[in-house]
């Protein structure tokens, strides 16, 4: 908390002000280092040869030896796990937007009995430890033949992503004045045409961002993935299940494989971070 007080512009002149400024800058830089250095160290390990990874002491500089990465990529099961992760994440993305966006639209555009109840249920889902759903669903999936499938896991990940999809699309739609739709109706559109010609083009960037967000939620999820997949393991499931048997350089390359796409996604949707988390969590 010591960083807080000096962050306000001090009213005292001269030294105090300059000192405050320095504390502020130092705090900012240190916090940035706290976030960035660990990621950098992971990358250093990934870009070092296997012997360097288990060597000691380390220099903290990468040797740009790609042996670890090659080892990881050619390791049995990795390519498949990567592919499975992508499939599950894409399915999650499609399901959560496909199911969530209509609900978000309904919440934003209509007043109807039951609206608040639905909103409450959606908000409430976050008060539950959702990965636990995987336990009973494992049984149910065996019964209906969804066990160990990408679709089955995508259903669980969609439960995780759906509340966000609903609340985010709700706020996206609420940002489009209803008059734009009404104007389209008076100009000859039916509801669907007005939606496609007017609303869609306007919310598309936000919709893509929330889709990417759903993708990331699925991409990162560990527990349900580990419970529900055996043969068709995702990357997280693969890594968590082979942690105690795999060599260090495999773990670090795997960690990087998890981190890099997530970093790219976060960067791609950075403009929407607040719409995603800030508003969705009100």
């Amino acid at each position: 908390m010591s960083t807080l007080a000096p962050t306000d512009e001090p009213r005292a002149v001269g030294d105090t002000r300059r000192a405050g400024r320095w504390v502020f800058i130092t705090a900012t830089v240190m916090l940035m280092a706290w976030v960035l250095v660990p990621i950098y160290l992971l990358f250093v390990n990934t870009l070092s040869s296997p012997s360097e990874v288990s060597g000691f002491p380390k220099t903290g500089l990468p040797s740009f030896d790609f042996a670890s990465v090659e080892f990881f990529l050619s390791f049995s099961g990795v390519a498949r796990a990567l592919w499975n992760s992508v499939v599950v994440a894409v399915l999650t993305m499609v399901l959560s937007i496909g199911i969530g966006a209509p609900a978000g639209y309904a919440l934003s555009r209509f007043d109807f009995p039951g609206k608040e109840v639905f909103r409450m249920v959606v908000v409430m889902t976050r008060a539950f430890p959702l990965p636990l759903l995987a336990l009973p669903l494992a049984v149910m999936f065996i019964r209906v033949g969804l066990d160990d499938t990408a679709l089955g896991l995508a259903f669980v990940h969609t439960v995780l992503a759906l509340p966000f999809a609903v609340l985010i699309t709700f706020s996206l739609f609420s940002g489009i004045p209803i008059e734009l739709e009404e104007a389209a109706w008076t100009l000859g559109c039916n509801r669907l045409q007005a939606f496609i010609k007017v609303v869609m083009p306007l919310i598309l960037p936000g919709l893509v961002a929330s889709a990417v967000f759903a993708f990331t939620i699925s991409w990162n999820e560990v527990f349900a993935a580990a419970v529900l997949t055996i043969e068709n393991r995702t990357l997280t499931a693969f890594l968590v299940q082979s942690l105690n048997v795999s060599p260090l350089h495999l773990k670090f390359a795997g960690g990087t494989a998890l981190v890099v796409p997530a970093l790219i996604f976060i960067f791609a949707v950075r403009k929407y971070l607040f719409a995603m988390w800030g508003i969705a969590n009100r």
Partner: peptide, 8 residues
Amino acid sequence: FQNYAVFP
């Protein structure tokens, strides 16, 4: 419309 509703 009052707020014009010109499609942006």
